[in-house]
Design a binder for these strands. Structure first.
Lengths: 241, 241
DNA sequence: CGATGCGTTGATAACTTTCAAATTTAGTGG
DNA sequence: CCACTAAATTTGAAAGTTATCAACGCATCG
């Protein structure tokens, strides 16, 4: 079962998304809105069918290999999926931020493990319920397909990223995060340097050094370790390769 | 439109898969069979709706950015999808062998370009036709979802691969190819060293050197450059990490 | 038979990791 | 609120891995 610290189930009571999504950034809200042509049909269904669960920082949401009976949507906070390799290295599959749906795959068992990066609230929906709905409602089915396709595309972009140099990876990462969590040019990172390193397939030292180098080149500023200001997006895009 | 060297359209005439799939390896055939619980329903539909096209070695099937109106299935030969980065580097998205379906994503434009690696025959099906069918037939829709999910999973495995060392990548690659194109312990590679390098995010020299090292370690044999014999799969699995 | 393309091998350079230590930040209890 | 402790991040030096540049071997094909 799920390892959680606290449960705040809302049962089958319908909770309007806006009320539940306080910390959603403008860009995340935009994504959520544009997910469907018939606005938020899947979103509505998920809220109706699912329950909201709370997870404290660094607690597990599910574990690799467990049977995958649920689909998840981040309400607040953020989530990382990851795998531990036999030698102890950790590869992060992806970061999920408010509005993101994860573990949508039609597979029996979880391919990755998932943990809350910060204290988070996650909408949890029975996969069967969602699939049953999709069978009856072609609009929902289409939304689910579109989401899976988008996830596939993201993974393909990720592959393009991982063949590049450390500087290129960081540049891509910063621009990617800017799309997600920026307000203006300031990025508020929910994850640690170690998380970034494991996401980009680098060591924490290389991440740190590369960020310092970007700061020296006046491309970014690092007011605090979790906050990064983009001073020159053009330069980042050029570096991205 | 499609860049092709020769067209052998079979219109809407139904061609039994077995007749069309001469060079399909045993494992590819197994995959094709196991794609569906109601055997080959999607497969049948694709043959009914689509046309078989022939592409000569190294000719383009479609190009990145073109509108993606078709879904493809390899009948014979093999296909690579790829992207060219701004600095000229090429990243190969994936190799597709007989039985494999590609470009199944619900996106407007091709994310990758596709070329025939060897002279190939490819079944080409209008995406609209397939989607229309999926709307009416929940079994077809399920098969399509399953294929997309499987593709997503493959990409996730690919990501795990790309953070590893050259030796680990080659070990993974060899075991992956063994699943696909092996007869016993002999692998007949359809692709060049450069293709392998661009798939694994390495240089051709590193691929060559690593293979030579594996041969020195008596893990593989290299009778010819396109043929590789696995002498010690256990060792490869351990290396894979 | 020479040209051409592909693959291998060698030497060197560039980049990233590893190990170690210093520094900053965050959390906790007084 | 401040001081103290632990954790996270940054920085430095050395080692390891892969890329780059160059040359060579080998097969195929006019």
């Amino acid at each position: 079962m799920h390892t959680q610290t606290a449960i705040r189930s809302n049962g089958f009571r319908f909770v309007p998304p806006a009320a539940n999504v306080l910390p959603m950034s403008p860009s995340a809200a935009r994504r959520a809105r544009s997910e469907s042509s018939e606005p938020n049909s899947l979103d509505r269904s998920m809220y109706m069918l699912g329950s909201t669960m709370s997870y404290a920082r660094d607690t597990m949401i599910f574990s690799e290999g467990e049977s995958a009976d649920y689909v998840y949507k981040v309400i607040s906070g953020s989530v990382r999926t990851y795998k531990i390799l036999s030698d102890g290295r950790r590869q992060i599959g992806r970061f999920y931020l408010p509005g993101d749906i994860f573990d949508l795959q039609f597979v029996d068992a979880h391919v990755f493990s998932a943990e809350a990066i910060a204290d988070s609230r996650v909408l949890v929906v029975k996969r069967n319920a969602l699939n049953g709905l999709a069978k009856r409602d072609v609009g929902i089915a289409g939304e689910l397909s579109a989401l899976t396709s988008r996830e596939l595309r993201r993974m393909q972009e990720r592959i393009m990223l991982l063949i590049k140099s450390a500087q290129e990876r960081l540049a891509s990462f910063l621009l990617e995060m800017a799309e997600y969590v920026s307000s203006g040019n300031a990025i508020e990172l929910p994850m640690s340097r170690q998380d970034i390193a494991d996401y980009l397939g680098l060591t924490i030292e290389t991440v740190s050094r590369t960020l310092t180098a970007l700061e020296s080149a006046a491309v970014i500023e690092l007011p605090t370790s979790r906050r990064i200001t983009l001073c020159n997006r053009g330069a980042l895009r050029r570096m991205k390769g």
